[in-house]
């Protein structure tokens, strides 16, 4: 066996069984996560980025099910774990923070009460010692007057503060992995900067691995070591931040980068990706992106592209790369 990763997702398939039919939200996703790494998953709404994260935690909605693939945590297959084992996995080994800090906190309990629950559930701290731990955690995430805050209810805090509480709660047991699902989308830029800075500094301090799920390319560029780009439930491209931003090799990634304002030339016209996001109920036979792709070829319509290694830090699933490869080979002959 090759080197063991902290988390290894292998050919994950997750489907939702709705009245309208099976929605293949995640369609063969594989990635590895190593300790201390910040991995960014980027994509549009409906691309399967959040569902991938939820599949790892096994917190999918009732209609959703992992229908194929393996998720290995430190080499152990999570699918063989019972619900009880998963419960201790969540929180202790892997925590998640959600987009909307208002709806993910319970409005009828105080901050202290909710945080203590997490501490008591996952550690052997009880009573006053657990209370102290709560205050310590709030301090860690930079909340002023933590002793006062523990008695407050979520509605008394601002959005940024609530997200800090969520982070503190997620860090209660010093997990190996922190999944952040659009952690700053609901926040203002100045507050977003505070939260991102906090996640970065905590990540350095505690050495945990972070999976950052977002649609914001700016946040990704700022935070991540490695990036996975998703479209239509599949991974289009993966690589280091440098490779993805400066040497994109999938037409979708290229399109995304062209459709946002160019920092070096603000007045340059944007090049939008034509069409609309795909209907997940009716996935095309070939490449998921082919209907919107300007460079689509015959083969794109019929066969989904395999991932091809561009270099050791970069892989992309696009037929264009195969074409280029052939052309250079032909030219060489």
């Amino acid at each position: 066996m090759s080197e063991q990763h902290l988390l290894s997702v292998q050919d994950l398939h997750t489907s939702f069984f709705t009245d309208a039919g099976e929605v293949q939200a995640v369609n063969g996703v594989s990635f590895n996560l190593d300790p201390g790494e910040i991995l960014g998953i980027v994509g549009e709404s409906g691309s399967g980025k959040s569902v991938s994260a939820y599949s790892i935690m096994r917190i999918l909605a009732d209609t959703g099910r992992v229908v194929g693939g393996k998720i290995l945590f430190k080499g152990e297959d999570l699918s063989t774990w019972s619900e009880t084992q998963m419960r201790s996995f969540r929180g202790k080994n892997c925590s998640i923070i959600f987009q909307d800090p208002m709806t993910s906190l319970n409005p009828v309990f105080t901050i202290g009460n909710q945080m203590k629950e997490a501490v008591v559930l996952h550690t052997d701290k009880r009573g006053a010692i657990a209370d102290d731990r709560v205050v310590e955690l709030l301090e860690l995430v930079g909340i002023n007057e933590p002793k006062k805050r523990v008695k407050q209810y979520p509605f008394e805090l601002s959005g940024g503060m609530r997200q800090r509480v969520m982070i503190a709660m997620a860090l209660a047991c010093e997990p190996d992995i922190l999944i952040a699902d659009e952690p700053t989308t609901a926040l203002d830029v100045t507050i977003q900067a505070q939260i991102l800075e906090l996640i970065q500094s905590l990540q350095k301090k505690m050495g945990m691995a972070v999976i950052l799920v977002t649609h914001d390319l700016g946040v990704i560029a700022d935070m991540c070591d490695n990036i996975v780009v998703m479209y239509g439930g599949r991974i289009c491209e993966r690589g280091t931040a440098h490779e993805i931003f400066y040497n994109p090799r999938h037409e979708y990634t290229k399109g995304l980068l062209r459709s946002i304002p160019n920092v070096n030339n603000m007045k340059k016209k944007l090049v939008p990706i034509s069409g609309t996001p795909i209907n997940m109920l009716n996935l095309p036979k070939g490449c998921a992106f082919c209907a919107r792709c300007d460079a689509a070829m015959k083969i794109c319509l019929s066969t989904p592209p395999e991932e091809l290694s561009i270099n050791e830090n970069h892989r992309a699933a696009c037929w264009m790369n195969v074409k280029e490869l052939y052309e250079t080979e032909e030219a060489a002959q």
Partner: peptide
Amino acid sequence: SAVPIPDPDITRSRKRILLEGD
């Protein structure tokens, strides 16, 4: 300075001026 710029080199070399509080 708080706006994350979608360009790793630029955004990582900038210094954020963080505002205190809300």
